[in-house]
Amino acid sequence: MAGIDCGTNSVRLLIADLGRDAGAGPEHGRAGAPGADPPLTDVVRRMEIVRLGEGVDRTRRLAPEAIDRTRRALTGYAAEIAAHGAERVRMCATSASRDADNAAEFVAMVQATLGVTPEVVTGDEEARLTFAGAVGGLAATAAAPYLVVDIGGGSTEFVVGTGTVDRAVSVDIGCVRMTERHLRADPPTPAQIDAARRDITDAVDRALTAVGLAGRSVSAGPTDGTPTLVGLAGSVTTVAGIALGLDAYRPERLHHATVSYQQVAAVTTDLLAMPVAERLRIPVMHPGRADVIAAGAMVLQIIMERAGVPAVVASEHDILDGICLSLR
Results as ranks from 00 to 15, higher is better:
T269C: 05
R88Y: 02
G153A: 00
R45A: 13
G133L: 00
A240E: 10
L18D: 01
V11M: 11
I200T: 11
A210Q: 15
R198L: 04
A191G: 10
V169Q: 07
G215V: 00
I293A: 01
S326P: 13
T268V: 06
R197V: 04
R71F: 00
I49P: 15
V169P: 03
L208S: 13
H84Y: 01
D186P: 08
E125V: 01
V176E: 10
C92F: 04
T228S: 08
A103K: 14
H28L: 02
T8L: 05
R250H: 12
R51Y: 09
V230E: 13
I302G: 09
S97C: 15
A142F: 01
D318I: 03
D318G: 12
L271C: 15
E65S: 14
A207G: 14
L40R: 14
R71Y: 01
A266Q: 10
V176K: 11
C324W: 12
E87F: 05
I173C: 15
R51H: 13
R184T: 05
R206M: 04
A143E: 01
P310K: 15
Q192V: 03
R279Q: 07
P39W: 02
A93R: 14
A290G: 10
I319T: 13
R328L: 08
R281W: 00
S97D: 15
V267M: 08
I151R: 12
R60N: 11
T164D: 12
D42V: 05
T228W: 00
M91R: 07
V292L: 04
Y249E: 03
A307L: 02
C324T: 15
A127K: 10
L244A: 11
A243M: 09
P145L: 03
E65H: 12
A140D: 03
V89S: 11
G55H: 09
A203E: 07
A86T: 06
L129P: 11
A257V: 04
V309D: 10
T189I: 08
R20A: 01
I151L: 09
A93N: 15
R51Q: 14
R206K: 12
R20Q: 04
S97V: 14
D270T: 11
A134V: 00
V299M: 06
R306W: 00
E54H: 10
R250V: 06
R177F: 05
D5M: 04
P34A: 09
M285C: 14
A66P: 14
V149I: 07
A240V: 07
T269E: 13
V176T: 11
V267P: 08
G245P: 06
M304H: 11
V239G: 15
G234F: 05
F106L: 05
A134W: 00
V116E: 07
V120H: 07
I151K: 12
